[in-house]
Amino acid sequence: MPASDNAFHTALALVLSMDPALIDIVLLSLQVSFTAVLIACLLALPLGAALALWAFPGRGVIVVLFNALMGLPPVVAGLTVYLLLSRAGPLGEFGLLFTPSAMVVAQVVLVLPIITALTRQQIEELHHEYREQLTSLGMSKLRRIPTLLWDARFGLITVILAGFGRASAEVGAVMIVGGNIDGVTRVMTTAIVLETAKGDLPLALGLGIVLLTLVAVVNGAAYVVGETARRRLG
């Protein structure tokens, strides 16, 4: 397949050229996904921990719901956020549609269930180990949340990376709510879709390789940090 032959050359040339347009796209991709993951973490980590600690009627339903939402198709998330942010929608007056902020919102919707569900699972396991000791120390459930989140930190790095992977790889949602506007809301994935539509498959695949490399670098860095700390702390 000639497209793939050229793709690696194209990817290399893209990176070496330091094309400012490409750099803007890369930076925006990272910025949007990092911001979305950051916001999602602020909400999902405590939420997931709370779901792990509290037993209440309907908890099972919520747990299943979050698990199911992990597989939420990005287009559906995008469409939902589009309808919310559209001028005709309930949040229309903020004028967020077709801005990077809208893309962040859409990615938060996609990432939140993943981080919540996986955090709940990790915290549940850790709490199984800690429960008696923490009860013996007389800790309330609320006060256990920060303790458990901190002590589960190495596992949670992987959880957050899963969220970041989903955010940076998805295209359906950001395409709809961002509009793939050149220089404003064009990110790696929507650029790939555009180049594919133009039939410039080597460029599309080249961009794909650049994206994959970026995600790999982020994952690699987190892995090294996590493993080193894990080995040190046992």
Partner: peptide, 8 residues
Amino acid sequence: GLGMVLSL
């Protein structure tokens, strides 16, 4: 992180 959010 904060800088990114703000600049956005």
